[in-house]
Design a protein around this nucleic acid. Structure first.
Lengths: 145, 145
DNA sequence: CACATTTATTTGCAAATACAAATAACATGG
DNA sequence: CCATGTTATTTGTATTTGCAAATAAATGTG
């Protein structure tokens, strides 16, 4: 088999790492990190979500998420509340400050989307996204056992 | 802007993380990690490479790479040699044991390529790779400043 | 209803990572 | 050929991460 840059996992990781690093640098001045943005974006989609739910949709490991949420709570970006129906579960909610931060990050995220996909037609961009979702789904069975 | 899974960086990271985790589990029984495989694959392409060169081609940060190479050296998978022309530089070489390990990982990498791309035509797979290289290149200017 | 099992989150701890400072050698301009 | 700046790698150190164990609450079973 050929050189490293013919391997899909490598290409994926390389592109992902570069975008992640650049995006991270961009939001750091706002006191945020990429992971925080993921949490905020998930809560923007639907507020009041469980840790496990958030872990799945953000692809952040639960124990990592717990600690991330600790620091986000310390920054008053989110608030933990006990779920009404299940006393084990925690519901996470954005605060006004969290919403303000989200609003400031959204344009950055949109810009990154444009920069990353510069030179792609809308159809190409969409095909790429479809491919990435398919690829993710393909790996479904192979984890954890 | 829409839900998290319409964002390209997210899709990229999510797919990449899942493949990386699964692949990592697969090579662990061989005493290897994903990052070690990256180094071995880079050396397979061309043996005797500098740390900085390896760092760039594997997308592993230099200081991380130093320590990774420490443990790989301890496992006798690679050997550091001083460069003939430049006494600052280190040339990294695979050892026979490193080559043997590489040979055992190659089929796993090939299998992962197939699993990840299940249901993709050859043309689709190639388009995806081209897109990922393009995307990486698009982010070129934006780093570090 | 008590007991074992499962589910949701957190915490302990060790390994991986990254930034910055340190070290060492090369390159260049006077 | 010395002084200054640049390049290659390593080390110091703090943060991030993830697995496994701990905690706590729900659910099921006899």
């Amino acid at each position: 088999m050929g050189p490293l840059d013919t391997y899909l996992p490598y290409l994926l990781n390389r592109a992902g790492a570069r975008i992640a690093t650049a995006f991270g640098e961009e939001v750091r001045p706002l006191g945020a990190t990429l992971q925080m943005w993921r949490v905020l974006a998930a809560l923007r989609e639907r507020d009041g979500r469980r840790m496990g739910d958030l872990s799945r949709t953000t692809s952040i490991e639960v124990s990592t998420l717990t600690r991330l949420v600790d620091t986000m709570e310390a920054k008053s970006l989110v608030a933990r509340r006990r779920a009404a129906d299940d006393a084990r579960a925690v519901m996470l909610h954005v605060t006004p400050a969290g919403r303000r931060l989200t609003q400031r990050i959204v344009p950055i995220a949109e810009r990154y989307e444009r920069v990353a996909l510069a030179g792609f037609s809308d159809a190409e961009a969409e095909r790429l996204k479809v491919a990435l979702r398919r690829l993710y789904a393909n790996m479904d069975g192979l984890l954890g056992d």
